Computed example of a mutant assay.
Amino acid sequence: MTRGPTLPAHRIPHRTGRLAIPTVPEQTRTPPPEHLLAGFNSAPADDAHRLLLDCLHSPRWAGRVADHRPYPDLESLLAACDEAAYDLTPGDLAEALASEALPTLPYGTYSAAHTALSAAHAAYEARFGHVFVICLDEVAPNETPDRVLEGIRSRLTNDPEEERVVTAEELRNLAKGRLATHLRGARSPALGTNGAVSGE
């Protein structure tokens, strides 16, 4: 798989000054996780499937997880996500990777870091033919650039089969983290405030 000559620019989110947090009316407050899980369990199959594809772009994985609803709790759902991800074929992984973006760098990252990371991403893609993915759920934002650069440099020494295994593990972790974020009450376009999965 070949990609264009240039990599997409790292997005730097706009950050304004500190804002006061207004009181949220009772009817618009984010519902508790169990309510959101109930909404996921009862949502139409197409809506649940769409939410899952936002977490990992593999129709086979999303279909398998959606088809095994209802889940009694979030832990059971995340375990099912993990199990389904272990069965992904190389073609499924390639499809998921094609929809992954480069890790977003935190606001204020120096241009030198952007340059180093762009070069590292280019070297990685030239070697393995797909975008570099890494789960940064437990990493502080200010440590993100160093962790990504360190990860790329370390994994460039892998042979293609070793890297396929590592990449699959990172995708599994990304999928679980994204779904947990959706269903632990984080606001998302994919979730309605009443706990149901909303359409696009």
Rank of each mutant, 00 (worst) to 15 (best):
Y86Q: 15
D87T: 11
D87W: 10
D87A: 09
L88G: 00
T89I: 01
T89V: 06
T89D: 07
P90L: 06
P90M: 02
G91Y: 11
A94W: 08
A94L: 00
E95P: 02
A96C: 09
A96L: 05
L97Q: 07
L97E: 05
A98V: 12
S99D: 15
E100V: 14
E100Y: 07
A101M: 02
A101F: 00
L102M: 10
L102Y: 07
T104Q: 04
L105F: 06
L105Q: 02
P106M: 06
Y107T: 15
G108I: 08
G108F: 10
G108Y: 09
Y110P: 15
S111G: 07
S111N: 13
S111V: 11
S111W: 09
A113V: 12
A113T: 05
H114E: 04
T115D: 12
A116E: 12
A116I: 04
L117I: 06
S118T: 14
S118C: 14
S118L: 15
A119C: 10
A119K: 14
A122Y: 04
A122H: 07
A123Y: 02
A123F: 00
A123T: 03
E125R: 06
E125L: 04
A126Q: 08
A126V: 00
A126P: 03
R127I: 12
H130M: 13
H130V: 01
H130I: 10
V131C: 05
V131M: 04
V131A: 09
V133G: 00
V133C: 07
V133K: 02
V133Y: 03
I134Q: 07
C135E: 01
D137H: 10
E138G: 03
E138R: 14
A140S: 12
A140H: 14
P141G: 08
N142Q: 13
N142W: 08
E143Y: 03
E143Q: 04
E143M: 06
T144H: 13
P145W: 02
L149N: 06
L149M: 10
E150R: 13
G151D: 01
G151F: 03
I152C: 02
I152M: 02
S154V: 11
R155Y: 00
T157C: 07
T157I: 12
N158Q: 05
D159A: 03
D159T: 03
D159I: 09
P160M: 03
E161I: 13
E161D: 15
E162P: 11
E162L: 02
E163K: 00
E163V: 00
R164M: 09
V165P: 05
V165C: 02
V165F: 03
V166A: 10
T167N: 14
A168V: 01
E169Q: 15
E170P: 11
E170F: 05
E170N: 12
L171M: 11
R172G: 12
N173Y: 05
N173F: 00
L174Q: 14
K176H: 01
K176N: 10
G177W: 04
G177T: 04
R178P: 11
L179W: 02
L179D: 13
L179N: 05
H182P: 13
H182L: 15
L183R: 03
R184C: 11
G185R: 02
R187Y: 08
R187L: 05
S188P: 15
A190K: 14
L191A: 11
L191G: 03
G192H: 13
G192Y: 07
T193N: 12
T193K: 09
T193W: 08
N194E: 14
N194T: 13
N194Y: 09
N194F: 05
G195D: 07
A196T: 08
V197R: 04
S198M: 06
S198E: 12
